[in-house]
Nucleic acid binder design. Structure first.
Lengths: 252, 252
DNA sequence: TCATCTTGGTTAACGCCGTTAACGGTAAAC
DNA sequence: GTTTACCGTTAACGGCGTTAACCAAGATGA
């Protein structure tokens, strides 16, 4: 019995149904309707109880589509970043941040599903995947690349709050950390801090708890990003990255 | 006909009913039940349709209780701040921020109702009150007092993005701004930026999109606040305020 | 004082929702 | 070829927001 079985017919069909569930749910959201088991089922030509063969509850459905929406959105961030050279992670990060913000502003419902959805304590097989959220991984990876290139300072392990030290040594949070040396795990603290800053402005803007004119101008977001250039060792790059950021913000 | 009529009997009764609605809704929330027209009505000994004499829709009920929850929470912030001298607005701000965070962590459902609830475009008579949210007013006021005392720098009007300039000259956002000279309205930009930072960490922590150990340690929140001392002219006060912040965070 | 109108409540009903139970057909497994 | 597991169905329950029709009583004005 080989370690990697080829998926049986049933398994393939089941996987296809999961895909269709996500597709139907995404369509509902983009159409402005709200997400419900019954609506998803109806769109698939099924009855609502049938969905219980695939998800154990409504919340699990939400978690499933949230995970997939995050994955799809991250694909968009990757594309935005890929317009810059592979050896220019700073530019790529700026582009990805702007793409993240644009997504949050254009699809506030999807954004809040993924990022404002209160996190449950535990969950199903699929739910666990959420702790390794795609976008989280991508942003940590970009940050790591920037560090490799610019060698910005980060706290040593013994400078960290002991609890935080545990957290960076054995992270629960979405972060691509396995390949970071334990001694370098202070980097994750920088990641958490910058992620918190990015998450903050974008959530503020996406939920509209902010003067609409300020959102439209992008000034708050811009200022927040610019403030983070120096801590990431990008002070010397500031003029170039500012220009780049403004161009990215100006894109339709 | 005098400008200020004393309220008629009916008006008083109506106002009392509004209070009872808010009270019933708050009770439901603190009990962990979720907010619904029917549940609120039942708790008041009424039937659901009767509530439509007071709010036009479920969303309006939510907005109403959100406004009152914000008001009540702000009362808590004021109390936390009032343990420090009136001529020490920096200490008061620190205490208020910690109180704000504590409230967000202890009552995540209420917090998300007030601060993660997507803002509607327009609304009813009562809804308009939301643009002058109590907590927003209180925090701007504290910031203004700090400025009066420490005279930290703020951008001149012509340094601001023109759109932002409009926004600070004629603010839509909760802020106690009428008493701030137009030339000094750059202060509001500082307010927006620091509010964004505070809102960011606290929302991140309250929704749980963060390693639970980091939340428990308070390190992310602490670091965010400390970063904002310098821009507010409080660099010289940093040791004192750091100590104060740690004491406040340590309070049960 | 009596007729009128407004206010604040009722009951009944509609169409959604998540969820459960009982059942059946069909494809895989032995 | 029989058995079993999977995947769908229908029926039903209780709860939700919301509307319509109705009614009692308090305020209003001739």
């Amino acid at each position: 019995m080989p370690a990697l079985q080829q998926p049986t017919r049933r398994e393939r069909q089941r996987e296809a149904t999961y895909d269709e569930i996500v597709r139907a749910a995404s369509e509902l959201l983009t159409e402005g309707a709200d997400l419900s088991l019954r609506a998803v089922a109806a769109r698939m030509g099924m009855t609502a109880p049938a969905l219980y063969r695939y998800v154990a509850s409504y919340q699990e459905l939400v978690d499933l589509v949230a995970f997939e929406l995050d994955k799809a959105a991250t694909q968009g961030f990757v594309e935005a970043a890929s317009r810059y050279r592979e050896d220019d992670p700073a530019a790529r990060l700026c582009a990805a941040c702007v793409a993240f913000r644009r997504w949050a502003l254009n699809r506030p419902r999807e954004f809040s599903l993924v990022f404002a959805n209160p996190i449950g304590s535990e969950g199903s097989d699929r739910r666990e995947l959420l702790t390794l959220s795609t976008s989280g991984h991508y942003f940590t990876d970009l940050l790591y690349q920037i560090w490799e290139l610019y060698q910005f300072p980060y706290p040593a392990l013994d400078e960290l709050d002991p609890i935080v030290r545990d957290a960076v040594l054995n992270p629960l949070i979405p972060a691509k950390a396995e390949h970071i040396e334990p001694a370098d795990r202070g980097l994750l603290w920088i990641y958490m801090r910058s992620w918190s800053a990015l998450y903050g402005v974008v959530t503020l803007e996406s939920t509209g708890h902010c003067d609409p004119r300020v959102i439209e101008s992008g000034a708050l977001f811009r200022a927040t990003i610019l403030d983070w250039l120096a801590p990431l060792g990008l002070a010397a790059e500031a003029p170039r990255l500012t220009k780049l950021l403004d161009e990215e913000l100006a894109r339709t």
